[in-house]
Amino acid sequence: MKITVLGGGNWGTTVALSVARAGHPVTLWVRRADQRDEINQARTNQRYLPDITLPAGLTATDDLGGAVEGAGLILFIIPSKAFRRVAQALGAHLSPEQLIIHGTKGFEPVTHLRMSQILEEETCARQLGVLSGPNIAWEMASGLPAGATVASRFPEVIRRARAALEHDQLQIYGNRDVVGVELAGALKNVVAIAAGMAEAMAVGQNAKALLITRGMAEITRLGVALGAAPGTFTGVAGVGDLIVTCASSRSRNFRVGDGLAKGEGLDEITARLGQTAEGINTARVVAELLRERQIRAPLLRTIHQVIEGAFSPEEGLRYLMSLEGSEDVEFVGGDF
């Protein structure tokens, strides 16, 4: 089976690396010819995965048609901003029997679509899946153990993902709830921004735990309203991903929160990261979704207001602490 990864950022390169470590040859499509040459000749991708040597079984190309032709599995790892553009280009080369798994945790701005919905709009592919979970690219690329979830309504997609990716340092868990896994992965990035702020403001571990759990309650509420199964938020792609994103100073979204708390502007933070932090766009989409659906989620709204500069991080935190306590776990029920 030919396996192709689209996207040469740090996550795309890490996914390609996992395929190679699982013992398969892998084609990595990148946009720029200089990046292609660096990968094929120097065996590095210095800008996105510094100091990692890429194995010989990983071949880069900038020819999209050639990369996907005859591929039995396409791993689509493109940031949400470029997602539709690449999906459009991919559509011209695709045959209906091909399987696609995407690994992008975000929403499309304006349309608020999930990534699998964009693939449905732009390509003939039906056998779709999503890869998500507590996956800090650098750790995985360094060879540390990890697990991820692949969700698809097609069992064959999960079977192929396991065959392509699993090796002694990576476990793949299956799930049917594509909507839930996509939403959990996207929404947790907003909570990660809150966790980053809390860390930088030195509010203590109690407050940080409170922010994270209330954030979890809010993203579950929104996710369920958008069609997710509540149980998905307790899984690897839910709590699992939230824990790692909120605990790791390597998480991009965590670093956005950290920067905001230190008084930096969004442009400054984004420039320093050098990569997309999906949480910024997601916070904006979330604010609109909450308004449209009339869902109460004070933490998510406050993060959005801090990002937009309407509140300082201190004001945001003061506001959140001033709210009356409500139900702890709403699926348990009770009148509080």
Binding site: Q88, G91, A92, L94, S95, P96, E120, E121, E122, T123, C124
Partner: peptide, 10 residues
């Protein structure tokens, strides 16, 4: 046709 109007073999 696919969603963008390209002919496909179903």
């Amino acid at each position: 046709l696919d969603p963008r109007g390209r002919i496909i073999d179903p």
